[in-house]
Design a protein around this nucleic acid. Structure first.
Lengths: 238, 238
DNA sequence: CCAAAAGTGTTAAAGTTACACCCATGT
DNA sequence: ACATGGGTGTAACTTTAACACTTTTGG
């Protein structure tokens, strides 16, 4: 992590990002895996993308920096949802060692500000963050992570569940430029962890001005082909 | 602020608490006023109660510590609602000077974790915090505060507005042991910044199992006397 | 008896939930 | 022709919003 050396980092505050995406099948979260610099650490070698805050760097700025770097997009949707500061969160010496190795600083307890980001998975999504390879993991198969990152993801999943009810248009940040009604519904079902009635769901979202039906249909399926829709962000008001 | 000296404070992270209460008339917020140690500082001499985080202290623990000290109660309702970390928040040299004077540490940018707390105003509410006198200010008459504390209060007021819709029982943390329907409604009206229909409001809250009518009535008013109710926390489910 | 606030019910509109059949396509 | 998922409407119920008159009390 040479790009971390020599810069002015605050060794007490970090920003971690729960980046969610949808590949058309599953809700996924972007996780960084340990670089090979310290192969002696066998466990907890997967974590959320994040880093220490720079001196004079705003929280939103740091998060936007991290996520836009990963997403390959300028202004991905994100918002801060909670700070985590338990003294136990850096209790595992292996986690701390990894971080100290990477930052060349002595690390004590770190308060982290957690962000939720919803992005579209594209081939512009970068495959590395600060020299750690990153990978999409289905949220149903998240391994044990470093620090308290499992707890942070749990909180993020509750947050996106809440969002999907209060501001459903945000969920469409994760869908591709065109998508079928089934894809929409499957994504909402995974977020809300319950089955949704297809007719009621269609009524609800298709009545929104920001869901626009296209004159394009699925091809190559052995059943009636589904219509494509697009999301029109500028039709979302207030 | 001798009680701050000699302890191990993290000079990068603080906890600030927006403590709201209701005196039967107005929604109020508890603010600390500068002690007389530095009378040369003329402006921004009022701020939120809060302090730097101690090394190895949990965020919730720090906030609970601050508020229970002020409220004179063991477990006041509170929750973290947002972190503020703009590099500009400690831009005013007067604010920083005050803090450096109090902590005897060199202060740079501080990330603060903001908590919202809803308490009952009683005569057990302490009148000082870390040697600074504290005072209840009507939320409609908040002066210019130190740091970004006006912005933090604005965010807290939006948070309590949201809470009053989603978990109305929390609002009753601010009401006295017995209260009239009018008092309830006035409090909700101030939180939501709109008038509420008296009949609909009565229907809504009086139908809740945790609002219990008492056989006690207002006295000494020159009109029909109002019934008292109490809040029964153990009837709140889930 | 007057002034002031307390207390109380109905209706309309909007939103939510449950539920079943025919259609288009590929094999 | 069959298997697969696509697409569509209605009725019951629940929730929310609007709205006015009679009662009680003190002065």
């Amino acid at each position: 992590m040479d790009n971390l050396k020599g810069l002015n980092f605050d060794p007490h505050v970090s920003v971690d990002c729960v980046v969610l995406g949808y590949d058309g099948q599953q809700l996924k979260v972007l996780l960084a895996t340990k670089s090979d610099e310290a192969p002696e650490l066998e466990y907890n070698n997967v974590k959320l993308p994040g880093r220490l805050l720079r001196v004079n760097e705003d929280l939103d700025e740091a998060a936007n920096n991290i996520v836009s770097q990963l997403a390959g997009a300028r202004h991905p949707y994100m918002h801060q949802f909670r700070a985590f500061g338990s003294p136990n969160r850096t209790a595992n010496p292996k986690d701390v060692l990894w971080l100290e190795n990477a930052t060349k600083q002595k690390i004590g307890r770190i308060v982290t500000i957690a962000y939720l980001s919803l992005i579209r998975i594209t081939n512009r999504t970068k495959s590395a963050f600060n020299d750690s390879p990153v990978e999409w993991f289905p949220v149903s198969e998240i391994p044990q992570l470093a620090f308290d990152h499992n707890e942070i993801i749990d909180a993020a999943l509750r947050e996106v569940q809440r969002l999907s009810q209060m501001r459903p248009q945000l969920v469409f940040e994760m869908l591709p430029p065109r998508f079928t009604a089934l894809q929409m519904r499957h994504l909402f079902e995974q977020i809300q962890r319950r089955e949704l009635d297809a007719r009621n769901f269609a009524k609800l979202v298709l009545s929104k001005p920001w869901i626009v039906p296209l004159d394009e249909w699925e091809t190559g399926v052995s059943h009636r082909s589904a219509r494509y829709y697009k999301f029109q962000a500028n039709k979302v008001k207030k």
